[in-house]
């Protein structure tokens, strides 16, 4: 499995972690009656907290991933007999090269996630038309952002596995 695929998996993992944590947080607050379907403010603040947590968690997970990956490459190179510092650094740098294929895959997968966000926006509007409580709309928007994140990663993985065509 390549560096790009592993990185994508860690991104999907981050998004899943945030989705599960948000779900658990909301369930707990519902049980504690500190959140309801009439007030928007607690929902908006909860979502803002989780957006911030999502960004922080992604940064931490990516840092940990890069440290572990560098260690594993260094160990592999040492076992292969390339124990010179320069060789190991070169191997680490080579494994993390981003090029035109990766840019194309990122572009195509982000286009797919944009469709997902758009669909979420329309679904949120439909929920208002159907007279659903406003927190439902907020949750649809937040959910589509998180699911779009996961969807983008999944599409990227498929492109890495199946290949990607120009045009």
């Amino acid at each position: 499995m390549s560096y790009q695929e592993k990185r994508t998996i860690t991104e999907i993992f981050s998004a899943l972690l945030i989705l599960i944590a948000y779900g658990l947080y909301i369930i707990n607050r519902f049980h504690a009656h500190t959140i309801n379907m009439q007030e928007l403010k607690p929902w908006a603040s909860a979502m803002l907290i989780f957006v911030g947590l999502g960004i922080i968690a992604t940064i931490i997970i990516q840092i940990l991933f890069h440290i572990l990956l560098s260690i594993s490459i260094a160990v592999k190179e040492s076992v292969a007999g390339k124990d010179k510092g320069q060789d190991i650094n070169k191997a680490i740098a080579n494994s993390m090269v981003g090029d035109e294929m990766h840019k194309l895959i990122e572009l195509k997968s982000s286009r797919m996630s944009t469709f997902f966000y758009g669909f979420g926006f329309i679904a949120a509007l439909v929920s208002i038309v159907l007279s659903s409580p406003l927190p439902v709309m907020l949750n649809i928007l937040f959910g589509s952002w998180l699911l779009g994140w996961i969807f983008e990663g999944s599409v990227r993985l498929i492109y890495y596995r199946k290949g990607v065509r120009n045009g």
């Binding site: 390549s2 494994s95 294929m101 990766h102």
Partner: peptide
């Protein structure tokens, strides 16, 4: 100047 994965693909 690309990744090995790109050459493989």
């Amino acid at each position: 100047g690309v990744s090995r994965q790109t050459i493989v693909a």
